[in-house]
Each structure stands twice: as structure tokens, then as C-alpha cells.
Design a protein around this nucleic acid. Structure first.
Length: 815
RNA sequence: GUCGGCGUGGCGGAAUGGAAGACGCGCCAGCCUUAGGAGCUGGUGCCCGAAAGGGCGUGGAGGUUCAAAUCCUCUCGCCGACACCA
């Protein structure tokens, strides 16, 4: 039999077709002068590693789907893309393949990844593409460094720094994890004293912390992590005069000035400058040995001794300013030179670490805060809570919180101490001894010292040859911009996190060659309305970007003080139990997916696979389920007559039910897309398709309600499966691109179930039926509650009742 | 250790305090096919029962409420971040 050929869903044909049309028409160009409300939809720009696969795609599908919906809703959407293109992997590749320049490696990867993104149907405004390794980008990265310098936020200092022996570079504090390099967990980080550039992020610690409270569109988790990272504490600095050193004292920092009377000894960090002078002859040998050992120990060895606190007495003593008591001074490596003043008063009764140390070295423990309800007697562990002051002279009997303030007042009056705030946050070390980064635009002149390269001479271009800058005299030999003397360029480059701290601003005016960004345009597009990316950037990138934004605000270049209004961290895609990665060999290739099931199927599947913030497992079976769904939609929309209706419907769906389902779906989908809850959104689309099929099988009349359902389904599915929907839209005879079509409007009244029937059963027998109008959807719960009261009243206390309420489509199931 | 988060079918997971298990995968039965790893229909939390029906069910124990997966207290177990920050 020769039946007319059915149209078959063939993604391999329609996907390239529509990708070309979108590109030709510039569908996702963002217009600066549009009268429409703006929506800045940003995905974290990636490092172009050259192995883009479906594991990366999840983030981009979310961003793209949101951009497409917002566009249909009438927003002028800025949805840009770029590349975090400086960095070590390119250099590593160049070292593995002699002759391969990091730039070539990077640019090749970019063009390859770009092709894959287009193949996935991502609509970016490619005219705004940025790559941080291009001179017209890093020119402005350098400019921003000079701005920092000008504002007193960049400084050079000799400091013990973290040195990764594999990457042969200094690492930021944030890049050291448990004493190991973040990129090479197999090696320990070494300590070296080097002259390095720092950014004074600590100047902004308070604002970075306090403004977290305004970021209610951020995950709580990230806000907590940043809060802890900044680690603000309030306390006091107190001077303890040193015995035998006239006029000199040890300054300590404590968060518990209320426990001053419980200080029974002091501890200095091994690196503390006073250690040498305090130590008595008798103790000198042992102290030197201890300090020497601590110096040599790497971070990791120090950590491994956790629980085994060690230290030595110096033989020196200091006087506690509140009670004149002389207490011994010890040296121990559990006190860090990098926090507070590098010296503490030890209060073993009320600090766990001091308690442990006192136990080990048999030092006295004196209780000065009485815990409510605790019986008298020796402490078994440090009591760190609040309580009533004891053994504290004139403060006895006070609440410890009150005594805290009073003691601080008294210390300040006597000039022996003062309130102080400390942070765990350190300044940001940005120097990197690497080639593939933005050169720090500084010249060292024998006469004028540290001289910034004048901004009109930017960019300081990277030399062509791939070799450490410090080994390229032709490059680093220069003349002083001030006096013309022979001078030397800074040969370090900047941490790539600097590049990524401002890229979202460059998108506003990516071709501006007068300034890093046009303040007017940046103010137009900022803040980012939705920022999506991995949780691994919860601290570093996000904190640095917030810092830059605040500095630029202070410089009068930006209105906003926070760059990202809403932040979302998507989960990772796994396969065979492991995160998809080239190295793990479990990545799903975009080209292959595209050629087989189609990009649309991959897009819908990654959204349906699980909650967007959770890690998910990619399976072929799951993907296949989505393919079936898309094929079913295709038939429902274009070939409804091909649906087998011989079996009849399971549940009767009439026009009214179909209309209501369509209206409900519009409401749910709009809300869930907006909140990036794509997994449930796909489920709603499937439900709509199921209802439509039931409608056909029930011999639906196919009046306007069917056509409306079809067009609504196509529009609602469009952000997730854009190629297929665009094709269906055209075949339905609609004119114009679906990408330009308007988003369906939610009508709450049309979505409301007409009524609820309450069937009252008592002891299994139906006693009563009540019809309750639930007309106002926002108040359904309340109405039901009222209905329940009505039922209970009707029963008039006749024993245990069971109340069942059913919606109209299931009414016939209840006798 | 501290701080966050999470415990729901065979699996991934749904449920503004209001029918627990939406949607999908898998599985079972049937239909259609030369065949199917295709398509269609129905079923599918657990226990008892041929069925009707009944009982039990969101890690565990209490509590609040007409009503709890959801709120509160305690407890057990996982996951993540930080980890000597005075």
C-alpha cells in the first residue's frame, strides 16, 4: 500500500538549517539603544580547554533557554560569551609539544569550542565575544591594574609566599588547598620569600562582608562560604610588657578580652620578630632548633601535626596588664604569624587549643567564666561559652558579654589595649612567574623606582617568543617612562583571576578602544540579572569580581556596587559514576550527539535529568526517553491524524479540560523556567503532551482549543528544543521566526479547576458530599480548610471520619 | 571539630502545611509486527486478599496542627565547604 510519506522528525536536517538562519538574521544581537527592558543573562566564561562536551553544556543550555524565554517575553537580552584564555594549560601543552605556541593552542581550542556551541543551538551575541589573551582585552586588564595602583590598592611587598614547585609559580592563598597546589594535589607548596604584587582586597573586607546581606538572589551556601572566607572577628589588641626589656611589649589579639584574667601564659608564632630577644640564654638552643624546624616545615607538615600541639618555653616573661601577673612566654607553631598579631595570650580554661597545650606542658588552668549550671571542680575541657565572671577582680559577677565591653573600655582608658577587628581574608597576591598572562605594566628604574607604564603606552605586549619573560632581555630592557634611563620591565604576569574579575563589564562595549568599558553602556546593562556557573567559583572568582566592582564604583565608573543580582550554581554531569571529562574518557561528544539523537534531545535531556543544582548521571536510556517525547510532540503538532486513537482514552479530556491544562502549563512553565527549575518544567510539558494525546483519543472536536494547545506547546518547548520548535512553527504555517514570537500569557482564571467535590466517608460509608468552589487558586488551601470545618460540623461529632476530596476528572472513581 | 545541605518506590526524582510517589527510566501483561533494542494500550510503593476492600508507608523517636515528607525538639546516617584564624 502506498501511503503518503509522513514527515519524520530528523534533527540532523533541521538543526543546521535553523542555526544558519538565526546567525544570518543576528537573532541574539543585543541592542544598546533598545527601548525594551534589559536582561543580562551571563554564563561563566570558560577556559578554552578544547574538550567541550555535554558535561559543559548543562550550564550553557540553562543560560540559553532563559535567554530565549526572556527574549520572547519582550526583554532586550544580553547573552554574551567569551574565553578565560590565559593560563597554565596552554603553557603545559606548549611544553609537551615543542613548537606549539600557547596562543595557537588557545585560539585553536576557541574555534573548535565555538563550533560545538553553535552546534548545540546556543544563541550568543558573538559580536561581543571576548578572549582575555587578546591585546585589546589585556590592555585594559593592565589599565585596571594601574587604576588599582593609583588608588593605593596595589602594592609590592616581600612576603613568604606559596610556591608550587611543579608550576614554578607563586600561588594565591586561595589556590592552596591543605598545603597543596590546587592544580597539583600531589605536591606540597613551598614557602619562599619574594617581592610580589598584592591587591589590597582587605581594604574592602567589611563591604564585601556586609553587602552579602543584599544578595538575596544568591544561594545561601555561597553567601555562607564567603562569610567564612572573609572571617571577620571582633576583639581587642592588648600590650603585655616584656620582663627585662624596658618599654617593650608583646601585642596580642584576642576575641575574648573578657577572659584576660584567665591568661596563664603567652604564645608567639615561631616567625615572630620578638622571639630572639625574649629568649633567655638557657633556652636559646632549644628555641632556635624549634623555630628552625617550624620554618622548614611546609604547610602540610604543620597541618599533619594537628592534635599534637608542640612548643617550647623561651624563658621570658611578660606582665598581664589587667592584674600585673607575670606569665611565661612560649613559642608554638599553632600560633600563626599571618593572623592577628602573631602572638596570643593563652587562656586554657576557655580556649580549646590553649587547653590542649596547657595539658600537654602542664601549665596552669584558671577558670574565669562560670558556666551556668556547671558544678565546681577541675575542667575536663575548655568552656568557650558565655557565663558569669569569676576570679576577675572588680569584674566578678558580671555577665561575660558585659565584662567584654567594660574591660575594653578600661584598657582603652589606660592606653594598654584597644578594640580591634581582624579578618581571615588576606591581600590578594597577583604576581605569577609565567609567560601566558597579562604582563604587569610596571618598569623598575634605578632613579625613579617603581614606575607605572603610562596608560597611553598600553598594552605592554607579550613578546612573541614563548620563553619566561625574565629570560628575554630584548623584551624586558626598556627605558624609564619618567627620565628615560635604562630600566627593566616587571617580568611577572598577572593571576588570570584578574582577567575574569571584569570580563562581564567588557561585554557592554567590547570594542571600546579608549577605556576598559563605556561607563554609560556598562551602567545600562549592569547588574547581571542571572549569572550561572559552577560552585567551584563560590569564593575566588565571585569574591574578586565583587571586589573589582566595588573599586570601579568608588572610582566613579560604575553605579552598581554588586555585579551579580542572581547567582545559580548548576550541578555537574556524570557518566559511569564519574564527572564527564576528556581525561576520564566518558564525555559525550557534541558532534556525535548532534549526528545521532540531535542537539535538541541533548538539551531537553540535560534539563530533565534531575534538579539543576544537583549532580546528575547521564544514561543512554534516559536520553532515549526524551527522544521519544520529542518524536511524540512532533507527531502531535504536525501529524495528529497519525496518532492511534483506536484504543480510546483512559480518561476523558474535553475542550474545557484541555484549555485548562494549557493555561496551567503556561503558568507553571513560565515560573519554573524563570527559577531555572527545568526538570519540573519538562515534566509539565510532558503532561501537556499526555493530555493532548488523551484529547485526540477521546475524539476531541479540534476546535480552537486544539490549535491553541499546539501553538502553546511549541512556544513553551522552544527555549529547550529551539530547532525543532522553529521547524514546527514554520510547518504550521506561521510567519516569522519563532525566536521572535511572543511568550504565551498566563491567565490564572483559565487555569483554575472549577470545583472540588468532597466525599465524606464515615467508617467506610459515604455520608455526605460537598461541592466546594475553589475558584481562587491562590486561596485553595484556605477554602479547603474551611470546607473541612463545615464537614466536621456536619458530622456533629460522630466519631472518626475520613475526608476524601477529588477533582472532577476522577469523580467517577468514587462510589 | 565547626558551619552548611540532604535522607521519599527497583532507579532519577515530584509534591504554596491539604489525595505522597507528578514526570521519566526500568519492569510486567496485552496489541501490532516476518522480526525488534520500533510503536501502541494497560499495570507497577509495600503487605493481606481471587476481587471488593483493608492495613502500613517519606531514616528513627517525640511534639505542634482538623491536617506534617513539609514546621519544632532530640537522634542516626550520608554529602559538601572550611579546617589550629586566638
Amino acid at each position: 500500500m502506498n501511503r503518503p510519506r509522513r514527515s519524520v522528525y530528523a534533527p540532523q536536517e533541521i538543526e543546521p538549517k535553523w542555526q544558519k538562519i538565526w546567525a544570518d538574521r543576528g537573532v541574539m544581537k543585543a541592542h544598546d539603544d533598545s527601548p525594551k527592558p534589559k536582561f543580562y543573562d551571563l554564563v561563566m566564561y570558560p577556559y578554552p580547554s578544547g574538550d567541550l562536551h555535554m558535561g559543559h553544556a548543562r550550564n550553557y543550555v540553562m543560560g540559553d533557554a532563559l535567554a530565549r524565554m526572556k527574549r520572547m517575553q519582550g526583554y532586550e537580552v544580553l547573552h554574551p560569551f567569551g574565553w578565560d584564555a590565559f593560563g597554565l594549560p596552554a603553557e603545559n601543552a606548549a611544553m609537551r609539544h615543542p613548537g606549539l605556541h600557547p596562543e595557537k593552542y588557545t585560539l585553536d581550542n576557541i574555534s573548535e569550542s565555538k563550533r560545538d556551541l553553535k552546534m548545540m543551538g546556543m544563541l550568543y551575541d558573538w559580536d561581543r565575544e571576548v578572549a582575555s589573551c587578546m591585546p585589546d582585552y589585556y590592555r585594559w586588564t593592565q589599565w585596571l591594574f594601574l587604576l588599582m595602583l593609583q588608588r593605593g590598592l596595589a602594592y609590592r611587598a616581600k612576603a613568604p609566599v606559596n610556591w608550587c614547585p611543579v608550576d614554578k609559580t607563586v600561588l594565591a592563598n586561595e589556590q592552596v588547598i591543605n598545603g597543596r597546589c590546587w592544580r597539583h594535589p600531589e605536591v606540597e607548596v613551598e614557602k619562599r620569600d619574594l617581592e610580589q604584587w598584592f591587591l589590597k582586597i582587605t581594604d574592602y573586607a567589611d563591604r564585601l562582608l556586609d553587602d552579602l546581606a543584599t544578595l538575596d538572589g544568591w544561594p545561601q551556601k555561597v553567601r555562607v562560604m564567603q562569610t567564612n572566607w572573609i572571617g571577620r572577628s571582633r576583639g581587642a589588641e592588648v600590650d603585655f610588657p616584656i620582663d627585662g626589656l624596658q618599654g617593650e611589649s608583646v601585642r596580642i589579639y584576642t576575641t575574648r578580652p573578657d577572659t584576660l584574667f584567665g591568661a596563664t601564659f603567652m604564645v608567639l608564632a615561631p616567625e615572630h620578630p620578638l622571639v630572639q630577644r625574649i629568649t633567655t640564654e638557657k633556652h636559646r638552643a632549644r628555641v632556635l632548633e624549634y623555630v628552625d624546624k617550624a620554618r622548614k616545615e611546609t604547610e602540610i607538615e604543620r597541618l599533619s601535626t594537628e592534635g599534637e600541639k608542640t612548643g617550647v618555653a623561651t624563658g621570658g616573661f611578660a606582665t598581664n596588664p589587667v592584674n600585673g601577673e607575670k606569665i611565661p612566654i612560649w613559642v608554638a607553631d599553632y600560633v600563626l604569624m599571618t593572623y592577628g598579631t602573631g602572638a596570643i595570650m593563652a587562656v586554657p580554661a576557655h580556649d580549646e587549643r590553649d587547653f590542649e597545650f596547657a595539658r600537654r606542658y602542664d601549665l596552669p588552668i584558671r577558670e574565669v567564666i562560670a558556666a551556668a549550671g556547671r558544678a565546681q571542680g577541675p575542667l575536663r575541657e575548655a568552656y568557650v561559652g558565655p557565663g558569669v565572671m569569676v576570679n576577675s577582680d572588680g569584674y566578678d559577677g558580671l555577665d561575660s558579654a558585659v565584662a567584654f565591653e567594660k574591660i575594653c573600655d578600661d584598657l582603652e582608658k589606660r592606653g594598654v589595649g584597644k578594640r580591634a577587628v581582624k579578618y581571615r581574608l588576606r591581600d590578594w597576591l597577583i604576581s605569577r612567574q609565567r609567560y601566558w598572562g597579562a604582563p604587569i605594566p610596571i618598569v623598575y628604574c634605578p632613579t625613579h623606582g617603581i614606575v607605572p607604564v603610562p596608560s597611553e603606552q598600553l598594552p605592554v605586549m607579550l613578546p612573541r617568543e614563548y620563553r619566561p619573560l625574565a629570560e628575554q632581555p630584548d623584551w624586558y630592557r626598556t627605558t624609564c617612562p619618567v627620565g628615560g634611563e635604562e630600566a627593566r620591565r616587571e617580568t611577572d604576569t598577572m593571576d588570570t583571576f584578574i582577567d575574569s574579575s571584569w570580563y562581564f563589564l567588557r561585554y557592554a562595549s567590547p570594542h571600546d578602544n579608549h577605556e576598559p568599558f563605556d561607563p554609560e553602556l556598562a551602567n545600562h546593562w549592569m547588574a547581571v540579572d542571572q549569572y550561572t556557573g559552577g560552585v567551584e567559583h563560590a569564593i575566588l572568582h565571585l569574591l574578586y569580581s565583587r571586589f573589582f566592582t566595588k573599586v570601579l564604583h568608588d572610582a566613579g565608573m560604575l553605579e552598581v556596587e554588586e555585579p551579580f543580582k542572581r547567582l545559580f550554581n548548576q550541578g555537574m554531569v556524570k557518566r559511569f559514576g564519574q564527572v564527564m571529562a576528556k581525561s576520564a574518557g566518558n564525555g559525550v561528544s557534541i558532534a556525535q550527539l548532534s549526528a545521532e539523537q540531535g542537539a535538541d534531545a541533548g538539551r531537553v535531556y540535560e534539563m530533565f535529568i534531575g534538579p539543576p543544582e544537583e549532580d546528575v548521571e547521564w544514561t543512554e536510556a534516559g536520553l532515549n526517553g526524551v527522544v521519544k517525547f520529542l518524536q511524540r510532540v512532533w507527531r502531535l503538532v504536525l501529524e495528529p491524524k497519525s496518532i492511534d486513537i483506536s484504543e480510546g482514552p483512559a480518561v476523558a479530556v474535553n475542550d474545557a479540560v484541555l484549555r485548562r491544562r494549557v493555561a496551567q502549563t503556561i503558568g507553571r512553565i513560565t515560573e519554573h523556567y524563570d527559577e531555572l527549575r527545568f526538570n519540573t518544567a519538562v515534566a509539565f510539558l510532558m503532561e501537556l503532551a499526555n493530555t493532548m494525546q488523551d484529547y485526540l483519543q477521546g475524539g476531541g472536536t479540534r476546535d480552537g482549543s486544539w490549535d491553541d494547545a499546539v501553538r502553546t506547546l511549541v512556544k513553551l518547548l522552544n527555549p529547550l528544543a529551539p530547532h525543532m520548535c522553529e521547524e514546527m512553527w514554520q510547518r504550521l504555517g506561521e510567519h516569522g521566526l519563532l525566536a521572535d514570537a511572543s511568550w504565551p500569557v498566563f491567565d490564572p482564571a483559565a487555569a483554575t479547576e472549577p470545583k472540588v467535590t468532597l466525599v465524606v466517608q464515615v467508617a467506610g460509608k459515604v455520608r455526605d458530599k460537598l461541592e466546594v468552589d475553589t475558584g481562587l487558586s491562590e486561596d485553595e488551601a484556605l477554602k479547603l480548610a474551611l470546607a473541612r470545618e463545615k464537614v466536621r460540623a456536619a458530622l456533629n461529632g460522630r466519631g472518626p471520619s475520613k475526608v476524601v476530596y477529588v477533582r472532577d476528572r476522577l469523580i467517577n472513581l468514587v462510589p
